[in-house]
């Protein structure tokens, strides 16, 4: 065996050995534990006063149909378990023993500024946990707009519905 072929063979052996672990590469993936230097200082907690990248405050957007639709979708995901689909506080989790939240149609909440609902979504209120990590600032305003729509519909009458759409309510 010449020196040359020995070098080639060992290079091939090294290359083949590296093939082994492509499925488990040394890189950080979500929810995988860190290794090496990072593992020494784990969990890496952010310093005090750090604001999440997507936690930038958003000013209230103009109320449009698409905003209300977005608000309805987000409300149905995150709020209905307790507040119910119509916002009267009779949600499924309340049936299971969770303290009942107030209905949105009480006078105190009708008088409350929009910022109040925004802050409650972000920071929680009473036994309600904060939803800041799951409902982004823009979506909070969408939910607030939808809550206002629920408040308006709470004492709606059949006369408020356009005549050609009344049939859909029966």
């Amino acid at each position: 065996m010449t020196v040359r072929s020995a070098i080639l063979l060992s290079a091939l052996a090294i290359a083949l050995a590296a093939c082994d672990n492509m499925a488990n590469q040394r890189k950080r993936l979500p929810y995988e534990l860190p290794y090496g230097e990072q593992a020494k200082n784990w969990p890496a907690l952010p310093p005090d006063g750090v604001v999440a990248r997507d936690e930038e405050p958003v000013s209230p957007p103009p109320v449009t149909m698409s905003l209300l639709k977005r608000g309805q979708e987000r409300f149905d995901i995150y709020c209905t378990p307790c507040h119910s689909l119509i916002g009267d506080g009779d949600g499924m989790i309340v049936h299971r023993g969770f303290p009942r939240p107030p209905s949105y149609s009480i006078q105190r909440l009708r008088d409350a500024p929009a910022q109040h609902f925004y802050d409650v979504i972000a920071n929680g209120y009473g036994v309600m946990f904060p939803y800041a990590d799951r409902v982004a600032p823009a979506d909070r305003w969408a939910i607030v707009a939808y809550i206002r729509a629920l408040q308006a519909s709470a004492d709606g009458r059949l006369d408020d519905v356009p005549p050609d759409q009344r049939g859909t309510l029966q």
Partner: peptide
């Protein structure tokens, strides 16, 4: 699904719920 897997629409990772998400209800139930 999105109540717990909140980032599934915006991220490659669906997101596993933080303990606080479980405790949203299980602090009372």
């Amino acid at each position: 699904c999105r109540y717990c897997h909140a980032t599934v629409e915006v991220s490659q990772n669906a997101g596993m719920p933080a303990t606080k998400v479980c405790m949203t209800c299980h602090s009372q139930i």
